[in-house]
Design a protein around this nucleic acid. Structure first.
Lengths: 207, 207
DNA sequence: GAAGCTTGTTACTTAGTGTCACAAACAGGC
DNA sequence: GCCTGTTTGTGACACTAAGTAACAAGCTTC
């Protein structure tokens, strides 16, 4: 309950709750019960309450959990409160979709730069940002500090960008391409793979 | 080993292996060891071998696993071989990125239609497809059969599309919006939430 | 003040995971 | 042809996490 690391399972479930809570907040709800969270996450209500009660008494009996305060509490537990700078690579369709969607902003991530090598894209506005040339990465990295690099580039360019990010001290890379990226062991690569997630869902719900 | 359902954990890991195998194949590799898979998935090599050996002897001792045949075997285990029709909703940046990326095609998913309500988008080509008006959904659903609906629409439109998909008999919905979607209990909604996945990664690798 | 929820918490059972260990099989070098 | 090194396949076992049931405490509403 102090500096102990959460287990993988607990952290995964807390993240899941966070997702539902954020969505529920967006839909205008202010309070939610463990039963309701259970319906959206497929996690046992008792399990949810136990996960949460291990860190404090966040709920009100007979009412449920206040969404705003629970979001804040979970983010404290996950030690991810505050703002985190992320850099986005690739200003194609995917990059633009990410930059303008707000999915990251809702969770405390600030896109501090969007980079591309295509001269026709550099200088163009995307959301509230302007596309910068990839060569400016190192100076931006020094100025503001980048915690996460998001790769929305073609497969063939992904490893090179990852290498540069590693050289700049970035420890977390979120890979939207289908490249298999090699990094030192102290760097984490998370690859988005919606098709595989679909296969997983298919197995359970069509068999 | 016959009709028993896999446990959640096993199915999740198999999907994860599939992801890495597909990536490795793309990178030109033809064979891979459990040790190598372990490095990309953070799953114990012994665990990987046990997961696989439960269904047959797929590897060659001293060599590793043949990537092509292992991909096929895992897809058989997950019972997701063959083609699956998916319908894509929303022809904005995200929809176009999905339609042109090939991430779904690589895993046996065929995009059988891309729909939008914006008259300026209907009729426009996106990848190998042409954007159809949303009103044509029901006829397409009857003609070809849709197994999965992918929502790349704004939050406010997501629930309505989901309702129509449910009415058309679709059982799996992949939601890229941040809407909280309600469906009957026999329908599965999988919501993409990259920001939450990032928070999860942040917890483990920056704390 | 009473009825009905919902949380917080305990105890117990069940199932999955990590780990060590080792034999069997394959490739490559000599 | 044989030896060396590598990698799979598999057993045993401890450990941890997750599912389940049950119930008291506390809040809201009528």
């Amino acid at each position: 309950m102090t500096t102990d690391r959460l287990t993988l399972g607990v952290a995964a479930r807390l993240s899941r709750y966070l997702q539902v809570l954020t969505q529920a907040k967006r839909m205008g709800k202010s309070s939610i019960s463990s039963q309701a969270i259970s319906e959206y996450t497929n996690v046992n209500p008792t399990q949810i309450r136990r996960d949460l009660s291990g860190f404090g008494k966040f709920g009100k009996r007979g009412v449920g959990y206040d969404i705003d305060s629970l979001i804040e509490q979970i983010r404290k537990i996950l030690r991810t409160s505050g703002q985190h700078n992320i850099a986005l690579f690739g200003a194609g369709n995917l990059g633009q979709a990410i930059a303008t969607s707000g999915v990251f902003a809702d969770h405390g991530f600030r896109i501090c730069g969007i980079f591309d090598v295509d001269p026709s894209k550099v200088g163009e506005p995307v959301g509230e940002l302007t596309v910068q040339h990839y060569d400016e990465l190192s100076s931006v990295a020094e100025d503001v500090g980048i915690e996460v690099g998001v790769l929305a580039v073609p497969r063939d360019a992904a490893q090179a960008v990852a290498d540069d990010l590693v050289a700049s001290g970035v420890k977390i890379i979120f890979n939207y391409s289908d490249a298999l990226i090699s990094v030192p062991s102290d760097v984490t690569v998370h690859t988005s793979s919606p098709a595989v997630e679909l296969l997983y869902a298919l197995y359970f719900y069509l068999s």
